[in-house]
Structures are given as structure tokens and as C-alpha cells.
Computed example of a mutant assay.
Amino acid sequence: MSEHAAEISWEKNTHADDASTYSRNHVGRFEGQQKLNISAAIEYKGDALCADPEQLLVTAAASCHMLFFLAIAEQQGFLPESYSDTPVGYLEKADSGNLEITLIELYPKIVFSGEKQPDEKAIARMHASAHKRCFIGNSIKAQITVGSYS
């Protein structure tokens, strides 16, 4: 088992665009002393210059998947040189009537170097294995899919 701690802090301020309500901006701090400006999504009176919780969830799922993919590729003797992704999460009304992230689509682009190059089937197997092992993916109920990749 491992523990993963963070801190968030918010202080009351007037909303920059709507004086009748409060600012949703707050700060997240992490164990490595990183600081992240966070707000609500812009659809919910958030600040477009800040990350929102939905983006953070989507990023966490994509990052976890990527880290497992890279480990699996290395174990299989492949040499990933770069990995990028443009994940998209969909906030929708669920059957319960509540809004939730119901789907996260990953769109990884991977470049390999070296003599040993994976074919499409090997890449698909590595993605399937990464998906199965991803801590974040196993912790949320949103469906996570891997779109086209290269």
C-alpha cells in the first residue's frame, strides 16, 4: 500500500466576471512542492486560465495509462522515444440523473526507436495490458477507451 497526499486551499474572493458570486479559484499543492492553480470548469463559473477537476481526472487517467504502457514496452524490449496523448473526457448526465465523467478517450501517439519495432497487434496488446493495470482506470467508473494510435 502507498499513500498519496495533496493539499487544496481556497479563500473567498469575488468572481472576476460576476460580482454576485464567489471565485472558484483555488490552489493545489503536492508532495514535491508543485503548485497548481485550479478552478471550476468555465461552464460552472470557473477560470479558463486554471485547470479544472474534470481535466485533472482525465489527465490522471491518461498519465497512469501511459506510465504502465511505457513499463510494459520496456519489459518487452521495445524502446519508446516519445509518447503524447490528447485525452478527452465527457461530462454527461448519467442514468442516476447526476453529472459524471462517463467516458475518457485516449489518443496516444508513440514513437519507438531501435531495431525491434512493435506491430499494430503488439501495440494493441500493450495498451490492453496498460488499461488492465492502470490504478486510476481501475478506481473510476468512467469507461476508458484507446482510440487510434501510431
Rank of each mutant, 00 (worst) to 15 (best):
S2V: 04
S2G: 11
S2D: 11
E3V: 06
E3L: 10
H4E: 12
H4Q: 12
A5D: 13
A6N: 12
I8G: 12
S9I: 04
S9V: 05
W10P: 11
K12W: 09
N13W: 01
T14K: 03
T14D: 02
H15P: 01
A16V: 05
D18A: 07
A19M: 00
S20D: 06
Y22A: 07
N25F: 02
N25E: 14
H26F: 06
H26R: 08
V27H: 09
V27A: 09
G28T: 10
G28K: 09
R29A: 15
R29M: 14
F30E: 13
E31M: 12
G32T: 09
G32W: 08
Q33E: 15
K35R: 15
L36R: 14
N37D: 15
I38F: 08
I38M: 15
S39L: 06
E43I: 02
E43G: 04
Y44N: 15
Y44R: 13
K45S: 12
K45Y: 12
K45R: 14
K45W: 06
G46Q: 05
D47W: 03
A48R: 11
L49N: 14
L49D: 15
L49I: 00
C50I: 01
C50M: 07
A51F: 13
P53G: 06
E54H: 06
L56M: 09
L57S: 04
L57T: 00
L57H: 03
T59D: 07
A60Y: 01
A60L: 01
A61D: 03
S63E: 05
C64G: 03
F68D: 14
F68M: 13
F69H: 04
F69N: 01
A71N: 04
A73E: 03
A73Q: 01
A73F: 01
E74F: 00
E74H: 02
Q75A: 11
Q76H: 10
Q76G: 00
Q76D: 10
G77L: 02
G77Q: 04
F78A: 03
L79G: 00
Y83W: 08
S84H: 09
D85Y: 02
D85L: 05
G89S: 07
G89R: 03
Y90N: 05
E92L: 04
E92K: 06
A94H: 08
A94V: 02
G97R: 07
G97N: 08
N98E: 13
N98S: 11
L99M: 15
I101K: 04
T102F: 01
L103Q: 13
L103P: 03
L103M: 06
L103F: 05
P108G: 08
K109S: 12
F112L: 12
G114N: 08
G114E: 08
G114T: 05
Q117E: 11
D119G: 10
I123Q: 15
I123S: 12
M126H: 03
A128W: 04
S129C: 05
K132H: 12
C134Q: 09
G137H: 11
G137V: 06
N138R: 15
S139Y: 06
S139V: 05
S139R: 09
I140P: 09
I140C: 10
I140Y: 09
K141F: 06
K141I: 01
A142E: 10
I144A: 10
I144N: 10
T145I: 13
T145R: 12
V146Y: 03
V146W: 02
Y149C: 10
S150G: 12
